[in-house]
Design a protein around this nucleic acid. Structure first.
Lengths: 216, 216
DNA sequence: TAGATTGTTAATCGATTAACAATC
DNA sequence: TAGATTGTTAATCGATTAACAATC
């Protein structure tokens, strides 16, 4: 059932951090960098960095470290930024629009070929260069274009219906922003974006941080 | 430094899942539920559910399970939905607007008292009932209102500046949606929302899922 | 009573950290 | 050569799973 993954989610998070770190380095800086330096900048353990980099790059050199340019390319490859997977988005409300605009996905290897929304005022229009289509056409369009990735940004009460239509259209991966547990067949993978949990976690950390002040 | 937390993030994710699950149960259904039933509905291990519930609720009863109404209240309490923490948001672009609209935070115990945006056309206006204020006033306003939580939804190149202003204003927790590693003092907690990593992870899972098809 | 269900204690698993050997 | 840095192997830690005792 839940098969083990070659690289776990936390590692993707870290790889993504290394990438932003490396890309925002001044052009005047050295052409190479050590894993230790990256770790220090991000405030994490250096062995973790070395292991992550070992798993996805062609390796560094003792005393020199990694060539930044090569490393950027290797990380981008590991994150799939060079693949251009096609996807559809359902729900062109505030969140959907934000996602369509958010650094414009293409940089991250995702090509949103269509967005569905039931609002008749939107259908036929374009948002951020993406055409808005009637949700009745979800299954047909996904099938014909062989789309494998669906992004769900509709309210929770229509999320399962949308999900079913996507799956019927052959979608195999769903990025779900609706606060609901979606039921899908075993061969469909889901990544839930749970804002409520993130927020709760942050609030709790804050409480503990303030409690620590007072105990000192 | 990195102090251990009473409840880890995955547990918050699960608690949040239990909550949506319980809340969307038909009113006609039984008033009680077993941990096993919840686990089955969500497709996760039942011992995990029992442990999570044991840690935050007053406990279930053998053969009966948990009283749904009480359980909902206990989970909401654990997630801090009954606390009403005050926060400010910086960056009222698409993402900021989406967050202000997203199930209207208040349900999750967060009260966004002000939103900052440098766009002069927005300053003084209201979005989703939240007043838009000049970012020059970040420090002053946070200080005066004793705000402890800041949400950053600005582009990456102004994120660190905004972050510094928030910290100067006494902010102790930051929910960061900008794709950049923010530098903060030790006593400020950060929760990064890394869309690029989530997306990369989903894409990779999809690849593995399709590879599995072909190997069978 | 019998059986469903909880909750705890022990065993396994995986990920992180520490120690160290290899190398430019 | 010496020292910085990589990368690997072993040790620790925490979280998940399995087994079982407690109880309504």
């Amino acid at each position: 059932m839940a098969e083990k993954l070659s690289i776990p989610l936390p590692a993707y998070n870290r790889l993504s951090m290394y990438l932003t770190c490396l890309k925002r380095r001044p052009a005047t800086a050295a052409a190479n960098i050590s894993a230790t330096a990256i770790a220090e900048e991000l405030g994490i353990n250096d062995v973790v960095v070395r292991k992550d980099l070992a798993s996805i790059s062609s390796g560094g050199k003792p005393k020199i470290g990694y060539i930044i340019e090569d490393l950027i390319r290797d990380i981008e490859h590991a994150l799939g930024h060079d693949t251009a997977a096609e996807a559809v988005l359902v729900g062109a409300g505030n969140l959907g629009k934000a996602l369509l605009a958010y650094s414009n996905f293409e940089k991250y290897g995702l090509n949103v070929v269509a967005a569905f929304d039931s609002n008749p005022n939107l259908i036929g229009k374009e948002i951020q260069g993406t055409k808005i289509v009637d949700p009745a056409r979800i299954q047909d369009l996904c099938e014909r274009m062989h789309i494998k990735i669906g992004i769900i940004t509709v309210p929770f009460d229509s999320a399962q219906t949308v999900c079913d239509a996507l799956v019927a259209g052959g979608i195999r991966a769903i990025w779900n922003f609706a606060p609901i547990h979606l039921k899908v067949p075993e061969n469909v993978v889901i990544k839930n974006e749970n804002m409520a949990a993130s927020l709760a976690f942050l609030t709790k950390q804050l409480e503990e941080s303030i409690a620590k002040d007072n105990s000192n």
